[in-house]
Amino acid sequence: MRFGVPLGLLHPAAWKDVAVAADELGFESVWLPEHLVFATDLSLAVYPGTDRPGISPVTPLFDAPAYLCWLAGLTSRVRLGTAVHLYALRHPFVSARAFATLDLVSGGRAICGVGAGWYPGEWLAAGVDFATRGPRLDEAIEVTRQLWSEPVVAHSGRFFAFPEVAFEPKPVQERLPILAGGESAAALRRAATLCDGWISMPHTLPSIRPRLDRLAALRSAHDSADPFSVTVHAYSLAGPEEVGGWESLGVDRMIVRPWKRGRDAVARLAEFAGRYGIGDRAVVD
C-alpha cells in the first residue's frame, strides 16, 4: 500500500512543512486540489447533493502544478499529484505543458489527477461551456497523450483543432500517469477507458465497494491489460489492520489525514508513519 497526504485540507501556510515531512517520513505522495477562480454569486456554488455553497469566494487559490514545482525543489522522492486538476478548463497545450514541466523538474514524480468539475461558476467566468466539460475533458486527455509521446501532433476534434506542432520536452516518465477523479458514471467510464487509474471521494470500506465493483466491470468490458491504480481518500482508518481490507479490494494508494488540527499535522504524520510502518513499505514508482 502507498500512502498519500492531502495538502488541500490544510492552510496553505502549512503545505511546505507538511510536504517536506511527508517526503522525509516515506509517504508516497502529496496532493493538491485546484480551482481557477471563484465567482461571488453563491447561487452558482451549491455543492451537488447539498443545499449549501461548496466554496467561499475569498478562499486563496493557487496554480497547483506551479506550486508542486516549488515543492519538487524542496523534496527528493515524494510524488506530486493533483486531486484534481480541471484539465478541460484550459487548452490541452496549457495543462500538458504544466505537467510535463512538473515531471521534468521533479525527476519524474508527477501524477496528473484530472476531473470534469462540479462548480459552474468558474467555467462561466472563463467563457467555457460547463455542459460539455465531460467530453471536452475526454478529448483533452487524448490530445495530451499524443503531445507527451509523439514527435509531432496535429488534431481536428470537436473542441480542439490545431495544425501539426512539436511538443518538447516530453515528460521524464515514459507514461506520466493520468488518473480520473469523480464518482459519476461518466467519471468511472473515463477512468476505466482513458486513464491510468481512478481517484475516489472520501470513503470507508463498506461505502467504496459499489464504486469498485462498477469500475471493475467497466475495466473488464474495456478489456485492457494496462496497469491501473486505485487511489482512495480514506480519512477514518480504524488502524493498521484495516489496510489489508482495502488491499483486498484492489486499492493500492490511500490518501490519509491523521490530524484533527492543522497545526498538529507534522506530528500526527510522524505518528502515523511509525504506526503503519510507512518508512518500511512505502513505494515510490
Score class of each variant (00 low, 15 high):
residue 159 F to A: 10
residue 85 H to T: 09
residue 282 A to C: 13
residue 187 A to W: 13
residue 81 G to V: 00
residue 76 S to E: 09
residue 18 V to F: 01
residue 132 T to Q: 15
residue 75 T to D: 06
residue 3 F to R: 14
residue 98 A to E: 07
residue 249 L to Q: 01
residue 139 E to P: 15
residue 164 E to C: 06
residue 178 I to D: 10
residue 121 G to S: 08
residue 82 T to P: 15
residue 207 S to I: 01
residue 215 L to V: 10
residue 51 D to S: 11
residue 236 S to C: 04
residue 277 G to V: 05
residue 186 A to L: 06
residue 172 V to M: 08
residue 179 L to Q: 12
residue 255 I to V: 13
residue 178 I to R: 03
residue 188 L to A: 02
residue 16 K to M: 12
residue 7 L to I: 05
residue 272 F to A: 07
residue 90 R to P: 15
residue 185 A to I: 07
residue 145 R to Y: 13
residue 207 S to N: 09
residue 223 D to T: 06
residue 10 L to A: 04
residue 28 E to A: 14
residue 203 H to W: 11
residue 169 P to I: 08
residue 143 V to A: 00
residue 213 D to R: 09
residue 128 V to H: 13
residue 140 A to F: 04
residue 230 V to N: 00
residue 195 C to I: 06
residue 198 W to K: 11
residue 49 G to A: 05
residue 68 L to C: 03
residue 210 P to N: 11
residue 214 R to F: 05
residue 281 R to Y: 07
residue 209 R to L: 03
residue 197 G to E: 02
residue 83 A to G: 00
residue 115 G to K: 04
residue 215 L to M: 00
residue 110 A to V: 08
residue 113 G to R: 07
residue 146 Q to E: 07
residue 208 I to N: 00
residue 200 S to T: 05
residue 121 G to R: 05
residue 101 T to G: 15
residue 213 D to K: 13
residue 50 T to P: 14
residue 214 R to V: 04
residue 141 I to K: 12
residue 175 R to S: 03
residue 177 P to Y: 04
residue 193 T to M: 11
residue 260 K to S: 11
residue 150 E to M: 10
residue 47 Y to I: 01
residue 198 W to E: 05
residue 128 V to I: 05
residue 239 G to S: 01
residue 207 S to G: 13
residue 261 R to N: 13
residue 251 V to M: 05
residue 95 S to C: 11
residue 263 R to T: 04
residue 131 A to E: 09
residue 87 Y to W: 00
residue 251 V to D: 10
residue 176 L to D: 04
residue 179 L to R: 14
residue 142 E to W: 11
residue 44 L to Q: 12
residue 225 A to H: 08
residue 251 V to I: 10
